[in-house]
Amino acid sequence: MAGYLVRRVALAIGVLWAAFTVSFVVLYLLPGDPVATMASGGLDGEPMSPAALDALRARYGLDQPLIVQYGTRLWDALHGNFGASIQNGQDVGAAIREALPPTIQISLAGLAFAIVFGGAVALVATYTSVRWLRQLLMALPSLAVSLPVFWVGLMLVQLFSFQLGLLPSVGAKGPESLVLPAVTLGLPTGALVAQVLAKSLSDVLDEPYVVTARAKGVGRVAIHLRHALRNAALPALTVFGYVVGNLLAGSVVVETVFTRPGLGRLTVAAVGIQDIPVVQGIVVFAAAVFVAVNLLVDLIYPVLDPRIATGAVV
């Protein structure tokens, strides 16, 4: 068990390091001259004098050889220092920390909606023997993942804010302002949960051990909840890291649609003015969240699946 833990943590650190490297390659090598890119201030910035550019280059250490730049940035990143925003000079870490709370709020609310919606759809769809209800429920997730998230948000705003006047269309004041963003964010994620769980439930229900349970005389509800769900939840759990990453990425669009502050808005603003240090900070942060969630799942997994705990090959 200890060996398992050490291996997982080492793997997680490796992925993080590689994510840093990938983002470094994308953001600092691909543009050719990152300083010119940054200094142009997006599309409508004014050109700077060569001397000013050189000064900037020196300030960001970009006049050094690449390998030195990489080493320095990695070393700084290890100390939690991703540099400063080129727009306002704010520390990147501080900017992310500041933007985080509202994003965590809608992500958690969205996650809750996704699990309730996805879980309910999957359970009912695999349980019911009413044909049309099953088909309807199974069609729901594939419909939900086909809709553009930003469009769903706008349509919800149109309906619930402007037509019915029930909920606020923008802002982050009060719990009622959380409802529409959470539903918008949670809908595609919930659809994913529903699809994975329903597939895995119906696979499990075809397993011979379910026949064994039925042959004992166990009732359908008990089979569904006691035998099938626990086995089916295991494959569904493995997509959890992906689900959380989805929510984080979804916040980019959702926060724009609902004009809420947060990490998503910070991202959009940073990309808009090509603020490379901020974008890199956010990318590495997202990878860290993904890695942390997956690590957590890996640690929970053996508790739920005895086959892994005892080291059996599945």
């Binding site: 983002s23 953001l27 990453g245 990425a249 980019v252 974008v279 990318v283 990878a287």
Partner: peptide, 13 residues
């Protein structure tokens, strides 16, 4: 490990 949208945004940057 990097959500697709964020990776795309980094590339656009």
């Amino acid at each position: 490990a990097i959500p697709a949208v964020l990776l795309s945004l980094a590339l656009i940057t």
